[in-house]
């Protein structure tokens, strides 16, 4: 992860959008990629305001209470209802969720 900072003109290219869309498994075609590129560039431009904020010695905050979690006791529950869980699945056979053949 680089320490690269946001440049004053964070224009996202269509190519970058296509790369990101691939990571996010979204089927974005060339045209919509351009329009997303515009939109996202505008959103990223909002970031310029925060670029000027001095955050030296400030630690990132990921949870507001900075509390620590309470752990669960290691006890297994045998209450799984596979039929109910799989009633919402698009394709199930022999208890398996089906996807197109994956070659490994």
């Amino acid at each position: 992860m680089s320490q690269q900072s946001v440049t004053s003109d964070s224009n996202v290219s269509r190519e970058e959008i296509l790369e990101i869309a691939n990571l996010a498994r979204l089927g974005v075609d060339e045209n919509t990629a351009s329009s997303y590129a515009d939109d996202i560039s505008k959103v990223l431009n909002l970031m310029h305001t925060i670029n000027n904020v001095d955050t030296t010695d400030v630690k990132p905050l990921s949870n507001i209470h900075e509390a620590c979690q309470e752990l669960r006791v290691d006890v297994a529950k045998h209450d799984i209802n596979r039929e109910r869980n799989q009633s919402v699945a698009p394709a199930v056979e022999e208890g398996l969720y089906l996807v197109p053949q994956v070659i490994e």
């Binding site: 992860m1 680089s2 320490q3 690269q4 900072s5 946001v6 996202v12 970058e16 959008i17 990101i20 869309a21 990571l23 996010a24 979204l26 974005v28 997303y36 939109d39 996202i40 959103v43 990223l44 970031m47 925060i50 670029n51 904020v53 955050t55 400030v58 630690k59 990132p60 905050l61 990921s62």
Partner: peptide, 29 residues
């Protein structure tokens, strides 16, 4: 989809610190 793309972009390798980590620091402020 726009927000997924924006978020994916912010988390992706080249930009994580510039966007995500920076935003988390400002959150503390």
């Amino acid at each position: 989809q726009r927000r997924i793309l924006t978020g994916t972009y912010a988390l992706s390798a080249g930009y994580f610190d510039a966007y995500y980590t920076k935003a988390q620091k400002i959150r503390r402020l």
